[in-house]
């Protein structure tokens, strides 16, 4: 049995989740402590992929990263690198669709705790960096972790946008969801069934674990 869709999917999802985690935490923190004109517009743009059909996201990415696109052209001219129809394109699609989940979870987590905890730390002489690493991040961690799990699950399940910008190239861009679709289309239901069971089990485990962990965490910090 060809396992490459599983490995490829894991590789893409792990990389996408790492990117989304770092940028999501950074942006959520930045926007949660600052108010400025146009903040609502930025937040709306960030959340947009959540309500758009994946084909619209895919079309947008093709438009920007295609050979003649704004960024695609730059990549080609400067680095002689074409993103479209590579596994990097699948990473890009996964990042764009899973980013809103990470951002939303992290932003809610940063806003949830009492601001006076940070204020208290400042009055004791702590630098902004120290307050972030010792107060804000640990207290927001349960929400951030939920965001990481949800983003990973969303990245793993990405189909529409991936198909549009990475295509279906066996051994190169055939992620699990794509492999399921093309197996069914080719009449190979048995192969599709195995991947479906795998995706189902993973999805269930992720959500189950998340619920359990959330329940446990609400009891208190000292009972880890």
């Amino acid at each position: 049995m060809n396992m490459s869709p599983l490995y490829l999917s894991l590789q893409i999802s792990i990389l996408a989740t790492c990117i989304v985690m770092i940028t999501g935490i950074f942006l959520a923190r930045l926007l949660s402590v600052r108010t400025f004109k146009g903040k609502l517009v930025i937040e709306s743009i960030i959340m947009l992929p959540m309500v758009l059909p994946p084909t619209v996201v895919g079309f947008g990415l093709l438009f920007l990263f295609g050979k003649n696109g704004l960024f695609g052209g730059l990549l080609l001219n400067w680095f002689d690198f074409q993103l479209i129809f590579t596994w990097y394109a699948a990473v890009l699609a996964a990042v764009v669709v899973s980013f809103p989940l990470m951002y939303q979870s992290a932003a809610a987590a940063f806003q949830k705790h009492d601001r006076n905890l940070e204020h208290a730390a400042y009055t004791m002489g702590a630098s902004k960096r120290k307050v972030f690493w010792t107060i804000s991040l640990p207290l927001a961690w349960p929400g951030i972790l939920a965001g990481i799990v949800l983003s990973f699950a969303r990245a793993l399940g990405e189909f529409g946008a991936t198909l549009m910008i990475a295509g279906y190239i066996p051994g190169k861009t055939d992620t699990l969801p794509l492999a399921i679709y093309f197996s069914v289309e080719a009449g190979d239901n048995e192969q599709a069934f195995i991947w479906v069971i795998l995706m189902l089990s993973f999805g269930f485990l992720a959500i189950y674990w998340l619920n359990r962990w959330n329940g446990k965490n609400s009891i208190g910090f000292n009972k880890k």
Partner: peptide, 19 residues
């Protein structure tokens, strides 16, 4: 900034770090 004012502050809800 508050870090350099040398002001001790007891907040109404105490603001003890729960973790």
């Amino acid at each position: 900034p508050p870090q350099s004012r040398k002001v001790g502050y007891v907040f109404q809800d105490y603001a003890l770090f729960p973790h």
